[in-house]
Design a protein around this nucleic acid. Structure first.
Lengths: 222, 222
DNA sequence: ACCTGAACACCGTTCAAGT
DNA sequence: ACCTGAACACCGTTCAAGT
């Protein structure tokens, strides 16, 4: 049965669906062609090659992540809300986000959120280079957190032997701490706690200076 | 020329060298065989298949990252020193660390550092579940930071058009902030600032309680 | 302008055969 | 116990040929 005309968008749609459902490894040109009901070589006419097909998928994902609306009344609340919204968006498309990451476009994907954070940092009284550092610290933290979190989810089950090791070694100083570290993590709660603690630390340094200065001031030289 | 007996260790060594010098994509069974001067199939006798070869490389990397010695006098200083040592170790083997990450073993790799952080959290007066959260917040932050940082380094050059966009949009509120965000990042300084700020935020909540409690206490409900 | 099958140079892996 | 070449089923990509 001769299928109706193939289009670039159709190729991208089916490719995205393939990645979403079966992971990036499933996106081979031959399988994609089979899914589309065309010859493998037809795809090349529409998207060039596999590399630029992936580029296109990644670009799409980046623009999809474009909308961030802060919620809450205080700057700190609004920053936490941006962080949470971002985390949710990233977690909804794990494979595609991983592809964005592999291609080094994580930062670009983050531009809209960065803008929102900059606004809130300003509202919180931070200025100039000082504010920029706070924005970037938050940006790195949120993105980094989600990357680590995703990694944990893919991780093979922890061998019980290792947990025992942990417990034996650390029990001397704080048994409850050792137990808590051996227990599973509530990653949502930890995320909010982390962002909150960082925001507290960042805003604590907020005085009107425009400064070149460091965010904290302790003697942590190396 | 018949080469001397092949060994599993020799296979792993050359494989690791290949990854370190030419990236993970260069590690094909055929190329590895050529490098070793043997038939492709000999490798299979020693390491099973490509998958378990990668497993072995990753396991090696994890144990290599095993030694962490905190430096400094206050707990806060010592935590920052652990974070910096860790960042350096991760950055020395970018490809191998990426492989560890892909295989979901980032957390395992982090066990020794986790132990050191737990010790310092205790010394700083944090206890029980409260201390565990602080340890994990730091752990996620450091690993996440390095992941994001590595990503930036692989990123394609930012198009000037985007920077202009940024500047135009944000200039209204804080011109210097906009300029600072358009400038390149001193990632080392940002890293230390971020860790410091997080430590400040985490230790600010430190009172003797064993608590279930959150690290901060503000009303950031959603 | 769009689609096709044949062909090329690569993969990882298996297996029967050697020593 | 260790090594080998041949063969298999997969890749992405190119290209001349069709409509």
């Amino acid at each position: 049965m001769a299928r109706s005309a193939l289009s670039r968008d159709e190729v991208l749609d089916t490719a995205a669906a393939l990645v979403r459902e079966h992971g990036p490894a499933a996106l081979t040109m031959r399988r994609l062609a089979a899914e589309l009901g065309t010859a493998v070589t037809s795809i090349y006419w529409h998207v060039g090659n596999r590399e630029s097909l992936l580029d296109a998928l990644v670009t799409r994902t980046v623009t999809d992540l474009g909308t961030i609306r802060p919620r809450g009344t205080t700057p700190a609340e609004r920053i936490v809300s941006v962080a949470r919204a971002l985390r949710r968006a990233l977690r909804e498309r794990p494979h595609l986000v991983a592809m964005v990451h592999e291609r080094g476009l994580t930062e670009r994907m983050f531009l809209p959120a960065q803008r929102a954070l900059a606004h809130e940092a300003h509202a919180a009284g931070l200025r100039g280079a000082h504010a920029a550092r706070a924005v970037r610290a938050l940006q790195f933290q949120v993105v980094g957190y989600v990357l680590v979190e995703r990694n944990r989810e893919r991780a093979p089950a922890q061998s019980p032997a290792e947990e025992e090791l942990w417990r034996a070694e650390a029990a001397g100083s704080d048994a409850e701490l050792a137990r808590a570290l051996a227990a599973p993590i509530d990653t949502e709660a930890l995320f909010v706690d982390s962002v909150r603690a960082l925001v507290d630390g960042l805003l604590a340094g907020a005085s009107g200076d425009t400064g070149d200065g460091a965010v904290g001031r302790g003697p942590y030289s190396h």
